[in-house]
Write a protein that binds this DNA or RNA. Structure first.
Lengths: 198, 198
DNA sequence: GTCAAATCCTAATGGTGTTAGGGTCGGTTG
DNA sequence: CAACCGACCCTAACACCATTAGGATTTGAC
């Protein structure tokens, strides 16, 4: 179908397109081969096996997402950085749902060790640095923010918010505001606790 | 392998066991048939197709999870209810990772319409009611709490927290405390905002 | 005791990933 | 310049999967 030179990068890119179009599970060596007008075994010259192909898509997604986040938080801090961070994620899910799906799974060792993975960690740190949170607290805060955002986007993706009002968009704003509230009061959170705690 | 009468319920239960043992993707009609010492086509008497089998596992998981949550929050309110709610989820992921996985996907229409789905909504409401949050705010709050908890558990499951310190357990406590903070200050959250907001 | 429905079977088809090994073309090397 | 070699794609084959068609056997009702 395409005249592109068959190469590892091109194969993975085509896999990513198929993932976005039909879901990550629809990524198949046979479908990629078909789209190139080539026989399935020919792909093994460029990709070790299906698992390596999927890890390749994961690394690609990590890289693209890290770049989007980096652009979104550059020169911003606190609330603006947080909103940029969140919306970078959300727009990526909308633009590339299949690639996002490739991140919601246990990836192979080479994908975890990829430079792209370190890059994601770095941009995450940058957001929290703006709030003046350091040390173990920063790890906790990153995990909490990442959990809330990815959790929301996954629930939205699978349609969990589709059958109730108000629209998910409104809750997204509330979520970002809530996280901002949490981060700005991170250091005096103890004093805000109510009696019922213990 | 088992002398159990072959029936729709038994087939789905066996599928759930296989999911917990090897991941949701390892649930296959062939594997279930093998475990019963039966030929694959025989299962079609009890289950429409593979999609129906997976939806059956999803409904089973919804039911079991709703029951755990119900037990965990019975007679509790505010922080205790929230902690019970969170830990019910977390223990379910640990005990039945494959069934939990069956919930992290877009399910079929019959699964969405199942009574179990409504049951989950009811127990969710119960937690928020204890904090005195009602109306649209309750929907927002449920979505935020659900996003944060499921997001954390999914990231923990795929190993996102495995390669950094401190242990995920610590962050889980921070998450529950953070959510409690958010819910207790839900109604005065506007007054806690800092100037940078806009 | 007979009939019918339920249940399991075998046979077959088409889709998937994967390996083995053959042909062809381009560029490299003596 | 000619022989060679390696990269690349091919065909053939195998194992595993879901699904459908249709036959046989058992079970339960009347």
């Amino acid at each position: 179908m395409d005249r592109t030179q068959l190469t590892r990068t091109a194969v993975i890119a085509r896999g990513a397109e198929i993932a976005d179009a039909g879901g990550f599970d629809s990524v198949t060596l046979a479908a990629i081969a078909r789209s190139f007008g080539v026989q399935t075994p020919s792909l093994y010259t460029h990709v070790r096996d299906l698992a390596a192909l999927r890890d390749g898509i994961t690394v690609l997604a990590l890289d693209e997402l890290a770049e989007r986040i980096g652009d979104a938080i550059a020169g911003r801090s606190e609330y603006d950085a947080l909103v940029g961070f969140g919306n970078a994620h959300r727009s990526y899910v909308q633009d590339h749902p299949g690639r996002w799906e490739s991140l919601q799974r246990r990836a192979g060792a080479d994908a975890v060790a990829a430079p792209a993975a370190r890059r994601i960690v770095r941009v995450n740190d940058a957001v929290l640095l703006g709030y003046g949170i350091t040390g173990d607290d920063r790890t906790h805060a990153i995990r909490i923010v990442g959990s809330a955002l990815s959790g929301f986007l996954n629930l939205e993706r699978i349609g969990s918010f589709a059958h109730s009002t108000p629209a998910a968009e409104r809750s997204w704003q509330e979520l970002l505001d809530s996280l901002h509230l949490l981060l700005t009061h991170w250091h005096d959170r103890e004093s805000l606790r109510t009696k019922e705690k213990s």
